[in-house]
Design a protein around this nucleic acid. Structure first.
Ligand SMILES: [Zn+2]
Ligand SMILES: [Zn+2]
Ligand SMILES: [Zn+2]
Ligand SMILES: [Zn+2]
Lengths: 146, 146
DNA sequence: CGCTTGACGATACTCAGTCTCATTTGCTAG
DNA sequence: CTAGCAAATGAGACTGAGTATCGTCAAGCG
């Protein structure tokens, strides 16, 4: 339910083959809401009898990640998950209850990074910022019925 | 080479048994410099013929992490690693060349988190921030010989 | 159309991390 | 100091994510 330039479009623009399995995986991803794991997609595929090989799902995820159509996030518990997203620098706010995520663009991090660089002597190259909390929907639901 | 309250001390204060295997693992950790994985410790132990079971190393790491004597970080490539560190909120600056890490305390994040919360409606509970770059030592080494 | 080459899927494999369970050991109460 | 118990250990089986191999297939192009 995002109107991100569809993964298929990104694939095409990058000159990759628009194969049936890739379309299927892209489809599975776009009908997901929050973050998901490779295993989730494998299950989804089996449920809908899409007949996509396990290895293919991993390969597709890897490729989509390279093309920045999808991003990998690390959950607080150490699990890896993926999120469909836009190909520009941003971070994710992740609901620890329902897994829904939102992108945040202006991260205010350049300033922090500069400051840290000055104090530690490191030449900062990149950063990862993930915020965890409760999304508006879950907050509402929680206050409604306990 | 940190003078963090030794892991053994932390263990003791928290009321856990000071077993020989735990001492050994703590020893291995403290003589490490940058981040390390469970597998690294397993190798170290084997090399120095310390005779500590694999499972025990995992268990020790888990416990030390719970006690905040050690923290888990996620490398950009998706690998998991650990770093010995102080039990207060802070973040790590990680050298992508030599794995050395430094802790940063004032992270300036509360402001960012508040802002993000306001814009997204999320109730922010926690955040993870990791900075990657080149440490001063590596910068010096690099400029010296290429 | 047919070719070429990249992609696919089945399957075997690796490796991190967990679990089980019989044995050992740190601790403490006596 | 010692006995006894709970907690911790280690060997090894197990799980599940992710990767590698390789023969087959089909997307895209002329
Ligand atoms: Zn939610
Ligand atoms: Zn940022
Ligand atoms: Zn370095
Ligand atoms: Zn912070």
């Amino acid at each position: 339910m995002t109107d991100i330039p569809t993964i298929v479009t990104v694939l095409d623009r990058a000159g990759y083959r628009l194969t049936e399995p890739r379309r299927k995986v892209a489809g599975l991803i776009s009908r997901r809401d929050g973050h998901f794991s490779a295993a989730d997609l494998v299950d989804d595929a089996r449920e809908r009898r899409l007949d996509v090989g396990r290895a293919t799902i991993f390969r597709a995820l890897e490729l989509f990640t390279e093309l920045n159509a999808v991003e990998r996030v690390d959950l607080p518990n150490g699990d890896h998950a993926y999120v469909e997203c836009e190909p520009v620098h941003h971070h994710h706010v992740i609901c620890s209850q329902c897994a829904r995520t939102t992108e945040v663009e202006a991260c205010g991090m350049p300033a922090v990074a500069r400051d840290v660089g000055r104090r530690t002597g490191f030449k900062i190259q990149s950063h990862r910022l993930e915020l965890f909390g409760i999304c508006p929907e879950c907050q509402a639901a929680n206050s409604r019925h306990g």
